[in-house]
């Protein structure tokens, strides 16, 4: 039965790839026929060639590495603060009273609106991009952690107390696992915002990374590299989502 269902799954995922593959083939045919001009879109083969060319020179990986490390550092800093503050405000009512209104107010400012300010403060160096990514991922993690902690079944907490759990053991055995589904939703949401912020920030001002690669290629009219950059972003976004999904499957096995 397990074998049958896994076969089924493979078939299912194959089906979902039919349309993308057909579209790419169609795109290639239309480009070869000259129906899509090279000025609008490069042909798929051209994009692949660009990928190979840039891989060989190592340029592609260097840019991917730059972007990824920016994304991760921003995530760790902003997400870490969001998580910590979510725990703090979720667990300690006094902290919530003091901080939550402020956080809710700041949430209404779109973080991308701060780009000019960030450039003024930090220049176009790493700090500006880190600041923006960290700010962007902070809110989803904060909000979902806070909400997750608040929505832990009070009956379970009371049960824990009857069984002598208190302080750290109560947190680790009941509150944290209870809040985990919500925290992971926050993480997935943050990952989306992380890439989006990075794309915008790197496109506007950067001297390395995928966004820089795209903008640089635009100046030299290298359409294939521009499209390649877009694909790289999509790929990295998808990869992050898959990792988050795996983490979810691991942490939330009990929900299946």
């Amino acid at each position: 039965m397990a074998k049958g269902s896994s076969l089924h799954k493979t078939a299912d995922s194959l089906i979902s790839w039919i349309i993308p593959v057909v579209l790419v083939i169609l795109w290639q045919i239309l480009s070869t026929l000259g129906w899509i001009s090279g000025q609008t879109l490069p042909e798929p083969i051209g994009v692949i060639e660009a990928a190979l060319r840039l891989s060989e020179s190592g340029e592609l990986f260097q840019h991917i590495g730059e972007s990824t490390s920016r994304a991760l550092v921003g995530l760790v800093v902003g997400g870490g603060i969001g998580l910590a503050l979510g725990f703090l405000n979720g667990l300690i009512p006094a902290a919530e009273k003091l901080l939550d209104t402020t956080v809710q107010m700041l949430r209404n400012i779109p973080h991308l609106a701060l780009i000019p300010l960030a450039i003024l403060w930090f220049g176009i160096g790493e700090e500006a991009k880190l600041f923006l990514v960290a700010l962007g991922v902070f809110f989803p993690l904060y909000l979902n952690t806070f909400h997750g902690i608040r929505s832990v079944d009070p009956g379970l907490i009371e049960m824990g107390k009857v069984y002598g759990l208190n302080g750290w053991p109560l947190f680790r055995q009941i509150i944290l696992p209870g809040a985990m589904p919500s925290i992971l939703v926050g993480l997935r949401y943050s990952l989306g915002i992380m890439w989006l912020t990075l794309i915008v920030a790197e496109t506007i001002s950067s001297d390395s990374g995928i966004g820089y690669m795209a903008m640089n290629a635009r100046e030299f009219m290298q359409m294939d590299v521009v499209v390649l950059s877009i694909f790289m972003y999509a790929l990295l976004g998808k990869l992050a989502d898959i990792l988050a999904k795996l983490l979810e499957n691991r942490c939330l096995r009990w929900r299946m």
């Binding site: 009956g155 049960m159 009857v162 069984y163 055995q173 209870g178 985990m180 009990w254 929900r255």
Partner: peptide
């Protein structure tokens, strides 16, 4: 907290995880 006592509630309150 009464250490000699255990409570059983109407809902089982098992930890789902």
């Amino acid at each position: 907290l009464n250490p000699a006592a255990r409570v059983m509630f109407q809902d089982a309150r098992l930890l789902p995880w």
